[in-house]
C-alpha cells in the first residue's frame, strides 16, 4: 500500500472518489460557464466545485486534500473572487454607471453572450467555492484541534 492509503476511508471509497472527483469538478465548471443560458450559475457551480474538494478530503483525509489545495490558496481565491466581482462592477463606471453591463451582449443562448454576466459568475464561483471550502476546513480543523488536546 502506498503512503496515501494510510489515512481516510477504505479502498473502495478511495477508488470511487478517484474516478468521480474529476467528473464532479468538471460538472461544476459546466454549470458555472453555462450560468447565463441555463439554470445554475456562479453560486451553484461554486458549491459543486467546493463539494469536489470536500469529497476528496472526506475520502483521503486532510493531508492529500491540502496537497491539492493549500489553505493559503483557498484564502487567496476567496478574497480574489470578491475583489474580481467588485472590480467588474467598478469597471462599469467607465460606461457611466456602477454595475453596468458594458460588454456587448451578443446573441441570446450562445455560450459567449450576456456581457459581464459570465465574468461575474466566475468571480462568484471563486468566492463561493473557496468560501464554502474554507467554512468546511474551519469546522474540521476545529474538531482536529479539540481531539488533539484530548
Amino acid at each position: 500500500m502506498s503512503k496515501e492509503h494510510e489515512s481516510g476511508m477504505s479502498v473502495i471509497v478511495k477508488t470511487i472518489t478517484r474516478l468521480t472527483v474529476g467528473l464532479i469538478f468538471l460538472f461544476g465548471i459546466y454549470i458555472l460557464v453555462h450560468g447565463h443560458v441555463s439554470p445554475g450559475g456562479g453560486f451553484a457551480g461554486g458549491v459543486i466545485i467546493a463539494l469536489s474538494f470536500v469529497h476528496l478530503m472526506l475520502a483521503y483525509g486532510k493531508e492529500v486534500s491540502f496537497k491539492k489545495l493549500p489553505r493559503a490558496v483557498v484564502h487567496f481565491f476567496e478574497s480574489f473572487g470578491a475583489l474580481m466581482f467588485l472590480g467588474i462592477a467598478l469597471l462599469g463606471f467607465t460606461s457611466g454607471y456602477f454595475f453596468i453591463n458594458f460588454i456587448s451582449k451578443g446573441q441570446p443562448f450562445k455560450l459567449f453572450s450576456a456581457g459581464i454576466i459570465p465574468l461575474c459568475n466566475i468571480a462568484i464561483s471563486l468566492k463561493v467555492g473557496a468560501g464554502l471550502f474554507a467554512i468546511f476546513l474551519a469546522l474540521v480543523l476545529l474538531k482536529f484541534e479539540a481531539e488533539k488536546r484530548k
Binding site: 487567496f76 478574497s79 480574489f80 470578491a82 475583489l83 467588485l86 467598478l90 456602477f98
Partner: peptide, 17 residues
C-alpha cells in the same frame, strides 16, 4: 452614492487578501 458601499467592501477584501 455607490462609493459608500464600494470603498468599505474593497477595503475589506484588500485587507483579507
Amino acid at each position: 452614492i455607490p462609493l459608500f458601499v464600494v470603498i468599505p467592501l474593497s477595503g475589506a477584501f484588500l485587507i483579507a487578501l
